[in-house]
Design a protein around this nucleic acid. Structure first.
Length: 486
RNA sequence: GGCGACGUAGCCAAGUGGUAAGGCAGGGGUCUGCAAAACCCUUAUUCGCCGGUUCGAUCCCGGCCGUCGCCUCCA
């Protein structure tokens, strides 16, 4: 089966065909940089990362754009998130933005999330956003209030709600929408807000000094870099309304063209069964999580449920994921060690290579079905079991076989899922530490040769206490650093 | 009140109209000086509950119960 994706726009799985064969244009809503990124970001962006990685694995050239929201994200109090952050930290708004943008990339890098091709900042695209607002005003989809704000008129765009299934009439019944006098309809949303001089984040516009609304930035930046119509719009399901809906309304009202063709949205993340929130005391930043678990464990944990499903971040579940990913690493470590002194390739290699091919097929089959990573991981474990048997069996293995298997791990576990690093050797602490450990293991080996098990075990325990696990293998001892949730 | 998702073994989690992948944990065994790793065997007559459609439903339809998300800032 060719790649099929679940499109939120049509609420069904569809064959994925980019506008241009072999070229995929993709946009994902990025973070508002007013604080350190949290686990919710990790879930969404790791999931999107694997989608991008897989599309590339299939041979597509993917242009992946993800914005940085550094202005315009207005709270219902009418306050800008960034300004609020600046007040909290008693710093400049752009200082806040800089700090947390760096923090964001730092965490994404640590999680192995491949950087977007373009990370456009909202504040760097004010003229573009003004152009969009002008266009919407000209076409009658927006109106200016006497107070100098500009709103999008949802009543002028009958398709408003087509993505989320929300209907503006029903919204009114909820009565939870803040009623603003100047709005014609309660669901109308801001395109431009007037700002007084004391508001630092403000720009001149045809409607006076002010700043753009939250939704217009995504419309402006996505279309600027990807075209009026592009292939994939990704993001978290929790932004489907109103944010994604507003993006569509703005774009399609102004251009008359369809905006994103496929909407791929990720399920939300909860912590211990409930939504994460600072007030609930279960707010976990990615930095917190990285102190407790390995990046691969976090990725594996996220990818062990389907991207559209919600995921509950629980300690025991993440630890189980850590054990699982360690199992894969053990095999790959053994495999790579074995490669070092393997025999040259021979004809016997061919039969083994044929044996592992079905695992790649199973993996691709799973991923082609709307990026079914849990099933793809299962395929990886099936492979793993077979490889373990092969490695522990008492038979010579040629370099051809071993490197073919290693190539499979590098492709599927490395390039696509990002849970098996290309380099699993532990060069923590550099050559000095590595050298010291080798010396200690050498000493221990002498005790072992002398059958002084007590001393040998004592050294092993002492090393274990500082996180260095020593495994005695028939071919000699190996060691690696344990990173178990602390 | 509106929109939506989910409920599968102790835990996490795929899945199919014809009686259930994978991982973690547990039990038994092999290997090993021991440990670890690895391998073999084993752990759901059953997929929230009640009806319906069907020769047959965990998967389709209806109802109920429960959990969660969005509608207000969130990825």
């Amino acid at each position: 089966m060719k790649l099929h994706v679940y499109n939120y726009l049509t609420r069904q799985k569809e064959p994925f065909k980019p506008l241009e064969r072999g070229q995929v244009t993709m946009y994902t809503c990025g973070p508002t940089v007013y604080d350190h990124p949290h686990l919710g970001h990790a879930k969404t962006y790791v999931a999107m990362d694997v989608i991008v990685r897989y599309l590339r694995y299939l041979g597509n050239q993917v242009r992946y754009v993800q914005n940085i929201t550094d202005v315009g994200h207005i709270l219902d109090t009418g306050e800008d998130r960034i300004l609020k952050g600046a007040r909290r930290e008693r710093s400049e708004p752009m200082e806040v933005v800089e700090t947390y943008t760096r923090s964001y990339f730092e965490d994404m890098d640590a999680l192995g999330v491949v950087r977007p091709n373009i990370s456009p900042r909202a504040s760097g695209h004010i003229p573009e956003q003004i152009e969009w607002i002008k266009m919407l005003l000209e076409k009658g989809y927006a109106y200016e209030t006497p107070t100098g704000d500009v709103y999008f008129s949802v009543e002028q765009f009958p398709e408003y709600g087509k993505l989320s299934g929300q209907k503006v009439e029903e919204q009114e019944a909820g009565a939870r929408v803040t009623i603003r006098e100047e709005k014609r309809h309660p669901a109308d949303f801001a395109l431009w807000k007037r700002a007084e001089p004391e508001h630092i984040l403000r720009w001149p516009s045809p409607w006076g000094w002010g700043y753009p609304g939250w939704h217009i930035e995504c419309t402006a930046m996505a279309t600027k870099y990807l075209g009026e119509t592009f292939d994939i719009h990704g993001g978290g399901l929790d932004n489907i309304f109103p944010h994604n809906e507003c993006e569509i309304a703005q774009a399609e009202a102004a251009t008359g063209q369809s905006f994103a063709r496929y909407w791929l949205l990720t399920g939300s993340l909860t912590v211990d069964g409930v939504k994460m929130g600072k007030s609930l005391g279960n707010f976990l930043t990615i930095k917190d999580a990285l102190n407790l678990y390995t990046p691969e464990a976090i990725r594996f944990f996220i990818l062990s449920s389907h991207y559209r499903s919600p995921v509950d971040f629980r300690r025991d579940a993440v630890l189980a994921a850590e054990r699982g990913v360690e199992r894969l690493h053990n095999t790959v470590r053994m495999l790579r060690k074995r490669m070092e002194d393997a025999m040259p390739s021979g004809t016997a290699d061919l039969s083994y290579i044929a044996e592992i091919d079905p695992h790649r097929d199973a993996f691709i089959e799973a991923m082609n079905d709307d990026f079914n990573t849990p099933q793809a991981i299962a395929a990886l474990f099936d492979l793993n079991k077979e490889v373990n048997s092969l490695l522990t069996a008492d038979q010579p293995l040629g370099r051809g076989t071993l490197s073919a298997i290693d190539g499979l791990y590098r492709d599927l576990g490395g390039k696509v899922l990002g849970i098996i690093p290309d380099d699993l050797t532990q060069n923590v602490g550099g050559e000095l530490v590595t050298g010291l450990i080798e010396i200690i293991l050498d000493i221990r080996q002498r005790y072992r040769d002398a059958k002084d098990w007590e001393e040998a075990d004592r050294l092993r325990h002492q090393l274990a206490q500082i996180g260095i696990e020593v495994d005695d293998r028939p071919e000699g001892p190996t060691w690696h650093v344990e990173h178990r949730g602390g």
